[in-house]
Design a protein around this nucleic acid. Structure first.
Lengths: 188, 188
DNA sequence: CATCATTAGCTATGTGTATTAGCTTATTGG
DNA sequence: CCAATAAGCTAATACACATAGCTAATGATG
């Protein structure tokens, strides 16, 4: 029996592709094994369990998304940085629907790497909001608002939740401008 | 063998309770059958399939949530109506986590009732926004914004996505006020 | 180059899930 | 009171994740 030459990295990478193709909910070890040319039990030589695989996807996806946002915002400031970050977030999520779904699971509080990666996302947004001269607690509120907005919009869009025919792209832009207005007129 | 006296309505109702207790992802027909004092195959006398059950939960939950929002907003106008609607949305979602999860699935475009119930939610929000004197297309954008915000916040909150210890309740209020500000200064 | 420890991948098996087929019997309408 | 309907059952299929234990390919070492 010739070896397939798998490594944990290869398994995870193909799992990510498969998840983006068929949806995270349809990512079965059976399908993954078939894609890798291997029998399902063999995967356990590289991953601990189906759930552990999902947790790896989760952390990896969060990391990539945070990097993407950071790259988009670098060299920009204030409203411009917010626009770039928002566009990058939406674009990444639509390009990687399976991996994006993975980021929706709550990070395991016992997994230090998972938690720190989750905080990295918040850190990127916080940095972009620094130009708006908010207090610490205001900045946290504003970060939560922006995350809620982005996550809510993208997941509704991905789920086909916007039934009406009106242009979704344009709504996104208008909405981000509205958030910038809100940031500039922050009250509480 | 004495009969359990089930009906489709009873099965769905208990499925809703079970989903709220154990999470939508853990709603198995085996667990539901046990709760109803019946063997799993017997459920098929009342529901077509596991997926069909989920779709019934989906429509029922969307309907209830829309009614809850409508009730909260009745007799109020403008910013006040938005505040009441937002609070009702969040409260319902936190009280019914399993049923709320069910509303996240995209409605089957072929199921007329599912689609019309989904539109009902949009209709309630649109009506509340009528006081803000927006054009038709502006109102649709604003509705999408509010839905995104509410859905994003609630699902992040329910998933434990807000890691920081800062008060989540207070963030929600501040955020809604920010949205009202944005509605009052609508530009595009 | 030969040997040996390591380990990738296998088969076989167990448990859990949804689902269908076909039987039995409780219930209800005539 | 009897017959039609249908509720609930057992048995069986198909597929998922997961573990145990075997075999053989690999890589390190003498």
């Amino acid at each position: 029996m010739p070896r397939a030459g798998l490594t944990a990295a290869i398994v995870v990478e193909q799992a990510e592709r498969l998840a983006d193709e068929v949806g995270l909910g349809n990512l079965s070890l059976a399908a993954l094994a078939e894609r890798l040319g291997v029998r399902p039990p063999s995967l356990y030589k590289h991953i601990a369990s189906h759930d552990a695989l999902l947790r790896m996807l989760e952390t990896s996806a969060r990391f990539d998304l945070a990097e993407t946002m950071r790259d988009a915002a670098v060299g920009r400031a204030g409203a411009d940085a917010v626009r770039a970050l928002a566009a990058a977030y939406r674009h990444w999520a639509l390009e990687h629907p399976g991996r994006y779904s993975a980021t929706l699971r709550a990070p395991d509080p016992h997994d230090r790497e998972a938690v720190s990666t989750a905080e990295r996302t918040v850190g990127v947004i916080l940095k972009v909001l620094a130009d708006f001269r908010l207090s610490d607690s205001q900045a946290i509120d504003a970060t939560r608002m922006l995350r809620s907005m982005l996550h809510g919009f993208v997941s509704l869009e991905a789920a086909g939740g916007f039934g009406m025919p009106q242009d979704v792209e344009s709504t996104f832009h208008v909405m981000i401008e509205a958030q910038i207005t809100a940031l500039e007129h922050w009250k509480a």
